[in-house]
Amino acid sequence: MIVADVMTRNVITISPDATVEEAVNIMLSRHISGLFVVDKAGDLAGVVTEGDLLRRDELGTQRNRSWWLRLLASPAKQALDFTQANGRFVRDVMTEDVLSIAQDAPLEDVVATMEKHRIKRLPVTTDGRVVGVVSRADLLRALIGRERNAAPMATDDRTIRAAILAALEAQSWAPATTLNVTVTEGVVDVWGTITNEQERRGIRVIVENTAGVKEVHDHLVYIEPYTGMVIDAPDEQT
């Protein structure tokens, strides 16, 4: 999937010449935590978020640096802090350096950017113009949509078994050579040995995600790699 498949196209934006009060009213009335700032030419100029408005003179939360921190902070940084705490317009408080992404970018790029920069949303741009926004919520909605559309296919036991074994072979972490799978009317029994509980969880996910599987019985035996202690599978314990 690409960005265009999941992004929200009706983006609420604001002018850099709008007041801080206008920005706050829009965020509160629309139940959103940020606004992309678009200039008169329609180009992306920045973003203003709740975080940009936390250090405000009206709240008494402006930065009050100790004398030695003031010595370390450059005059430019001190002036910026003052402007953000006292400025009346969006242009005074917005963040100008905004990351963006293209409509045809894969979702992997979206997730990687969000993780790296610890952000929740990205503007989608074409030639500098904002054409949409992709957020974590959009990714979750896409996930739910795929789950709903992925209805289990009716298939025979032999096909189910072959699909499970192929999926196990495709994973480098899966101990495929020590596993065996039997399928009876869609009920899967998994046998074999594992050396950590994460393997058990991963194997179960592979089986449960295979089309046609109705139920999974876990007979995997856990062998502690350092002591050799054997722990029976959950379905074998009484």
Rank of each mutant, 00 (worst) to 15 (best):
N86C: 03
Q84I: 02
H117M: 02
G132L: 09
F82K: 13
S100C: 05
D97P: 01
D109V: 12
D127S: 14
Q103F: 04
V110R: 10
V93I: 14
D127A: 13
R91H: 14
L122F: 11
P106V: 06
K120Y: 07
V90C: 12
M114W: 10
A105M: 04
T125D: 02
A105K: 11
T83M: 06
P123I: 06
P123E: 06
M114K: 07
L99W: 04
V98K: 07
D92P: 01
R121M: 02
L107K: 12
V124W: 09
F82I: 00
R129N: 09
R121G: 07
E115A: 14
E96H: 09
I101W: 06
V111I: 15
Q84N: 01
G128P: 00
V90N: 13
A85Y: 01
H117C: 06
E115D: 08
T125P: 08
V131P: 03
T95G: 11
Q103E: 14
K116C: 05
E115C: 11
Q103G: 11
R118E: 12
R91T: 12
L122M: 08
L99D: 00
L122D: 11
T83A: 11
V90K: 08
K116G: 05
V98A: 09
R91S: 15
N86V: 05
Q103P: 03
P106T: 08
V93A: 07
F89Y: 15
D109Y: 04
T113A: 10
T126R: 15
A112Q: 15
E115L: 14
V93M: 02
V133A: 13
E108C: 00
P123N: 04
V124H: 12
E108R: 13
I119Y: 11
G132E: 09
R91I: 06
R88A: 14
T95L: 06
I101P: 04
H117R: 12
S100L: 01
A85R: 05
H117L: 07
I101Y: 01
E115N: 09
D104R: 08
A102F: 02
E108P: 01
D109G: 01
R129H: 15
V90T: 12
T126P: 00
Q103C: 10
F89A: 06
D127L: 08
V98E: 04
R121D: 03
V111D: 02
L107G: 12
D92T: 01
R91G: 06
Q103L: 11
S100Q: 02
H117N: 14
V93T: 05
K120L: 01
M114P: 07
K116S: 15
A102C: 08
S100I: 03
I119R: 13
E96Q: 05
V90L: 06
D109L: 07
V111G: 02
M114L: 06
A112W: 04
A102G: 10
G87E: 03
D109M: 14
R129D: 07
H117Y: 15
R91C: 06
A102V: 02
L107R: 10
A102L: 10
F89D: 02
E115K: 11
D92Y: 01
A112R: 15
V124D: 13
D127Y: 09
F89L: 13
K120A: 09
M94C: 08
R88V: 05
V90F: 05
V98Q: 03
G87R: 00
